[in-house]
Amino acid sequence: MAEAVGVVAESLAGDRARAARTVLDQVVLPGEELLLPEQEDAEGPGGAGERPLRLNAGSRSRGRVVCGPGLRRYGDRLLVTKCGRLRHKEPGGGSGGGVYWVDSQQKRYVPVKGDHVIGIVTAKSGDIFKVDVGGSEPASLSYLAFEGATKRNRPNVQVGDLIYGQFVVANKDMEPEMVCIDSCGRASGMGVIGQDGLLFKVTLGLIRKLLAPDCEILQELGKLYPLEIVFGMNGRIWVKAKTIQQTLILANILEACEHMTANQRKQIFSRLAES
């Protein structure tokens, strides 16, 4: 019976299932099925007949495949659930497997454990703060989760303050929980964000682009004006420069960066540097 089902899935999927390797950095759509490199040998275009013999066929070292956002496991294939570009990251060892995910342009944030986000304190109740992070429910933040905070020495946090923190609990079934200290009890940049400055929202894709290790936008901005900047993975950016005018210029540049090429960006930066 199990075999029969397999055959049916195959015939229906037939022309649809593509090898994940061939669609890397291409747009994938919800419902598409992707074959992993290991199955390509067995079921892919080459067919089973042309597979070369291997000495250690039984003990093939299968790399561990991790499904990132936008992908689901479906039997031994990957099923796409979001529209975007398929990305892949090789594991450290480099022997197949690795992480696959879909890079989509979303606006709504869904809390993820370990993400650094900017939240707004919406309520103080007893020993926890409620922080709005843009997700489906507010995150909770204990007053003890600040550097140097004790039961007697409470942190000075008011309703309406901006908090830069990290998720320690974030899953679909539980209320998300934030902290403003790392595992050593240090603030390491987290905590309440200062009074002035400007907070604005951008798409989640832009944040990821700006925080990518090979992104030059931030260096170019730093050459333009001295600035303080905080990126939250929930699509919020806080920026502060010497004057309000400069702050607004920086905010506008960052918002416009999303759909600009490197050349267009350089032109704008050189024009701003002249003025």
């Binding site: 919800p30 419902g31 689901r72 659930t81 979001k82 529209c83 989509s104 709504r108």
Partner: peptide, 11 residues
């Protein structure tokens, strides 16, 4: 729904 990035089984 596709634009919002809501997870979907199919279009």
């Amino acid at each position: 729904l596709v634009d919002a990035g809501v997870p979907m089984r199919a279009l």
